[in-house]
Design a protein around this nucleic acid. Structure first.
Lengths: 232, 232
DNA sequence: TATAAATGTGTCACAGCGACACAATATTGA
DNA sequence: TCAATATTGTGTCGCTGTGACACATTTATA
């Protein structure tokens, strides 16, 4: 009934899973890149990823998480599928497909681990152009950036670049770094209050001026999409 | 330099490309389904799709188009990637990945061809639940529907369910069928005028009342995304 | 010729964002 | 001690785009 042998498998495309892991650090949007240890493109920077382990990975989501954890030692706070990139030319070994994920994490969560390694680095998104990047990963990163920027206009995803407790000022700063424009504090507060996805923390925190209210994401809550974009 | 032999290829996941082709016909949202001629799920309805032909397909987009044209004899007016679905259990032959596309076409473009065949049919989206559908295609169709509904709220994609020339009334009807709610004619006209993606046609057309203005999509124009959603 | 049916227009209310003034509360330095 | 400064938080006005709805326009039909 199930053919363990399939005529098409001979020419199955090469299939990999890669992730574009973003964070905001030092007021800049950064991407996690890995110095490639294997051919092709050995020595170039590329996205963290690899082949599916069909014996242990139950889905490609698991593959993406596994590969990210190998490089960062922690799971990202946000993960979603971006898009698949395919083509006859993008890999010298033949027709290939990369399923790309788009992930977010707070810089603090990984920085201590990253700093001890020199083949895994946070690269400033504005410096990608001047680097030699493997495969079509430069294009992929660009598309992931655009998706993140879009999402920042109509959803609260940027909170996943922040630690568990955060202030309005921190979130405002992260959003502004992502979209490359300033936004109104007032508009952000209105959204935080109407979204109903955050809890206020009793203890306030120093911030250079008046003590700031802290928030955290309500456990198990879904990301809210607003019906309107912020200023373009 | 290029290894024609790769250790991982032995356990490469099964990779296919499927499409959810929508149209609006008789005031209902329909999906093109195909009666499966092969195992697994022989005899069940499933999405049109299949394996990549790595010798002739330059990208998976081409695969999706090729498979759709085999069933409808024409190319869809709109095609975009939806998402990949993967898992160890979704195909009895083992770990598999389906890259799913989401496509739109005017019913008139295909109806004459479809009607002569009985293993390819437009199925009403509300009747999917009561059918036996192959693989996880029921879930996939549901997700594609949600994406289409979202897009209908902030973009003009629904025009691709209409013939070249269309009226405001026709577009209004198609949108309402997709999202399952009524919208304001006035709001739609405002969007048509501000989007700058349509040309008016001199010749007006009968519509049961006053003659209706006709529109067509400007050649080579991109779909406009509005900054605000229609009523939810 | 009146009625029905659809198209097209004018206008008001409402929601949410932008802008900005201003109040509140912390730190810092003279 | 107190003014200057910095950041947070609030109040409010204007603008834009959608919803709602009335009304005018144009066609077919009885």
């Amino acid at each position: 009934m199930t053919n363990s042998y399939d005529i098409n498998e001979f020419k199955n495309p090469l299939f990999t899973v890669d992730s574009v892991l973003f964070t905001v650090k030092e007021d800049a949007l950064k991407v996690l890149l890995v110095k490639r240890a294997n051919e092709p493109f050995i020595g170039s920077w590329g996205l963290p990823g690899g082949f599916v382990d069909v014996d242990s990975d139950t889905t490609t989501d698991v593959t993406a998480l596994r590969k990210l954890e190998e490089k960062t030692s922690v799971a990202p706070q946000y993960l979603e599928q971006l898009q698949a990139f395919s083509g006859i030319d993008r890999d010298p070994r033949g027709f290939s497909v990369t399923l790309v994920y788009f992930a977010l994490i707070a810089a603090q969560e990984v920085s201590s681990h990253i700093e001890t390694i020199d083949d895994v680095q946070w690269i400033d998104i504005d410096k990608i152009d001047s680097l030699s990047i493997a495969f079509d990963h430069k294009v992929i990163i660009e598309q992931a950036k655009e998706r993140l920027q879009q999402k920042a206009l109509y959803s609260m995803v940027p909170v996943y670049c922040l630690p568990e407790y955060f202030t309005v000022g921190q979130l405002k700063s992260v959003i502004e770094t992502i979209i490359g424009k300033t936004i109104q504090r007032k508009s952000l507060i209105r959204r935080i209050e109407s979204a109903d996805m955050f809890e206020t923390i009793d203890e306030k925190v120093k911030s250079g001026g008046r003590l700031a209210q802290q928030y955290k994401v309500k456990p198990g809550v879904n990301i809210v999409n607003f019906e309107r974009n912020l200023a373009t």
